[in-house]
Design a protein around this nucleic acid. Structure first.
Lengths: 160, 160
DNA sequence: TTGTGCGTCATACTTTCGCATGATTTTGCC
DNA sequence: GGCAAAATCATGCGAAAGTATGACGCACAA
């Protein structure tokens, strides 16, 4: 997360340097200043978007996770036993199976019917990464298909 | 999501206009071009970050909404009567969607995590037949993957 | 009797999954 | 600072899933 800020700063510095270096050429063509500015604007707008997504996406992720926790509690309180608002239940199951938080996160999206590609786009990771997580999660669940994994996850209380 | 892009473009245009208007002042101070560029860079970097967050926030919102919907359903289905083999309910839904009994039967097995081959062996039909049923059911459900089909079926009360 | 819906099956093709493997990078912790 | 776990990414391959299209038989109603 800090790495992005560093890169951002570095790129910024380089651009400013370039800016000063190329200044002399543009001074000749006074009218190019506008174009110059537009180029810089586009460049930094892109960089800003990139930074924004990289920097802020994790916050959304956390927010989402909180929502899920609340949901889990609601479901458990309402459905099976009023005496079991066990918030750590699925976490216990998760740990018992050695499933990492990220893997569970991917499982949730699998259960929603997203393809690996879509999951990758949602979480800002490559499809390959999703596949890796899936494979490991399936292995730990003893599942060989994603549908099977979803079914088992729900049986185990890993997913609502 | 498009609104932000529009605003972004408008702001960009205004800035470019301002840029050209203020050009004359800066031409006098040639050395200010660097500062000029840096200002633009900062401005648009900020704008980019803003755009990035705005662009990504809706996805999270939608996701949250879906979660709530699921919760409502689960509560409704689970709380009133655990012993509700409500055949007429899902049958209504089934007919409304034009899903045949056979297709629903295949959907149930899909939801259990069986592969097409296994489903075929279970029902004593060929794998191709299973594929055909699946394709048609998916189409009627508006799903493009079996996981998606399962999810939608459960949302619709077609499957427990 | 003829149409229509349903179930069955096939062939050919594209896309997606899942697995194995190895590698690099973060990250949290001692 | 370094270690270990977790996360990331790539590549290649075979298996499974999904699409498109056409065909056949059967039951039931118009």
């Amino acid at each position: 997360m800090r790495k992005q800020v560093l890169i951002f700063g570095l790129v910024g510095g380089v651009l400013v340097t370039l800016l000063q270096w190329t200044e002399f050429r543009f001074v000749v063509l006074e009218h190019s200043i506008a174009i110059y500015g537009v180029l810089i604007a586009i460049l930094f707008a892109g960089a800003g978007i990139w930074l924004g997504t990289r920097l802020l996406a994790p916050r959304e992720r956390i927010r989402e996770r909180v929502v899920h926790r609340v949901v889990d509690r609601i479901v458990e309180v309402a459905v099976p036993a009023p005496t079991t608002p066990n918030l750590t239940a699925d976490d216990t199951v998760r740990k018992r199976l050695g499933i990492t938080p990220r893997e569970l996160e991917i499982l949730e999206l699998v259960a929603r019917g997203l393809s690996n590609r879509e999951i990758g786009e949602t979480l800002f990771v490559s499809e390959n990464t999703v596949k890796t997580h899936c494979s490991r999660a399936f292995d730990k669940l003893g599942a060989r298909r994603r549908t099977e994994a979803v079914q088992r996850s729900k049986e185990l209380g890993l997913l609502p």
